[in-house]
Amino acid sequence: MRNRRGFLAGLVAASLTPRLSWADAGAPAFLSAGRAPDGAYSLYGVNHQGRPVFRIPIPDRGHAAAAHPDRPEAVAFARRPGRFAVVLNCVTGAEIARLSAPEGRHFYGHGVFSPDGTTLYATENDYEAGEGRIGLWDVTGGYRRMGEVPSSGVGPHDIRLMPDSRTLVVANGGVETHPDSGRAKLNLPVMQPNLAYLSLEGSVLEVVQMPPEHRQNSIRHLDVRGDGLVAFAMQWQGEETELRPLLGLHKRGHAPQKVEGSEAEMRGMKGYGGSVAFFDGGAQVAVSSPRGGRVQLSNVTTGRIAQSVEVEDVCGLGLLGDRLLTSSGTGQLQWIDGAALSLTNIAWDNHLVRVNAG
């Protein structure tokens, strides 16, 4: 990981190199928030060997990040209901900008860049109205806020760019929150999550809801296959005795598909789906559960759980080559087959965010 000498070398490189790339930041494969043994929170770059290649302090606990498609810049988002989002130069460690959610708004922990890197789309909460928003931030204008569009739901969390590069998919979790109430969930009896497909300009293209009996199954995190199939991880907000699937699949123009298994397999997740990721060429999909201490692997064609793998305090999932990587709060980065990639002293937070270096 870059030390002070490496940091200074990065400053020199920044002054001499006309265009920096992710290679100048140590060629990270992933970004992840984490907590060091001294309690300090940072955004880390993690390389293909599972080693941190940079560490940049952030104001408080982070959740996820957005990696710029061309430049070695990252936006680190606060864990809900935090109000900070910091833009970081991953070569020098400098803070480029700090995004402040407008009055009456807070961030929801995720964002994504437009394909050309000129716009950042961030999931936000209009907490007085109890409605979701997608904040639009002008990257070329120094991350100036340009405006916002409705997310077409309540509690938007994850947001992804679809393979057509013209469409966004938003996980509207359905859970209303307010900063004055911390992480309390204010509308569980009437919540209604959905998947919303929006154009880059904010037009609503399609909104998809699960059947009524799944109304309290909060859609939280997403992955998208190359053909546009969306996998979504859910978190059950109803009675613990009730059993619901925590993984779904959706293709635009079709009804959503539940992914299910035996009662024992489903209860083992303890009602909590964390990260979700396609692997095995898109033939399988994985969902993690830090509460259940496991990752479930499912067959996309059959919609059935095929295997559960126990991993203590696991949440992050990421595809590295053709293998699935997990990260956990224990500091472990390991392959889904249990083989260790590396063991760090960092308590990894929720997600491994892929760096698609331009």
Rank of each mutant, 00 (worst) to 15 (best):
D322T: 07
P59D: 04
L88E: 13
R51E: 14
H110Y: 15
M269F: 07
T241K: 14
G331L: 01
G141Y: 01
H68P: 07
D180I: 11
S203Y: 00
W236V: 05
L11W: 09
L319C: 12
R267Q: 11
V91E: 04
P245V: 08
A129H: 10
V208Y: 11
R83Q: 06
R291G: 07
D180G: 06
H250S: 08
G132W: 14
L120R: 09
L320H: 00
A97I: 01
G358L: 15
H63W: 14
K185H: 13
H221K: 11
L205C: 04
M210G: 07
Y197S: 02
L161E: 10
A357F: 02
E242W: 06
A277N: 09
G329T: 01
A129I: 03
S218A: 15
V86Q: 07
S165R: 15
D116S: 07
M1H: 14
G238N: 13
F7N: 01
F278K: 02
L120Y: 09
L205I: 15
G303H: 01
V12R: 11
G261S: 08
A25G: 12
A286D: 01
A286N: 04
P28E: 00
V46Q: 09
H106F: 04
L297M: 07
D180N: 04
L20Q: 03
N125P: 06
H106C: 01
G282I: 02
T118Q: 13
A13M: 10
D227A: 03
M1W: 13
R220M: 12
L247M: 07
G202W: 00
K251G: 03
Y127D: 05
G228I: 06
G111M: 11
T301N: 02
A76D: 12
A357K: 12
W22K: 09
A9R: 14
Q209V: 02
G281I: 11
H254Q: 08
H254E: 12
L8T: 07
L136E: 03
P72G: 09
D60I: 10
Y127H: 14
N299C: 13
A85P: 09
R215I: 06
G274P: 01
D164T: 04
R252E: 05
E103M: 01
V75M: 10
Y127E: 05
L186H: 13
G273L: 13
L11R: 13
S327I: 08
P256L: 15
M162G: 08
E148N: 03
D349L: 07
A264N: 13
R5M: 09
A339D: 10
V309K: 03
E310L: 03
A306Y: 08
N47T: 04
R267K: 11
R61W: 00
V175N: 11
M1I: 10
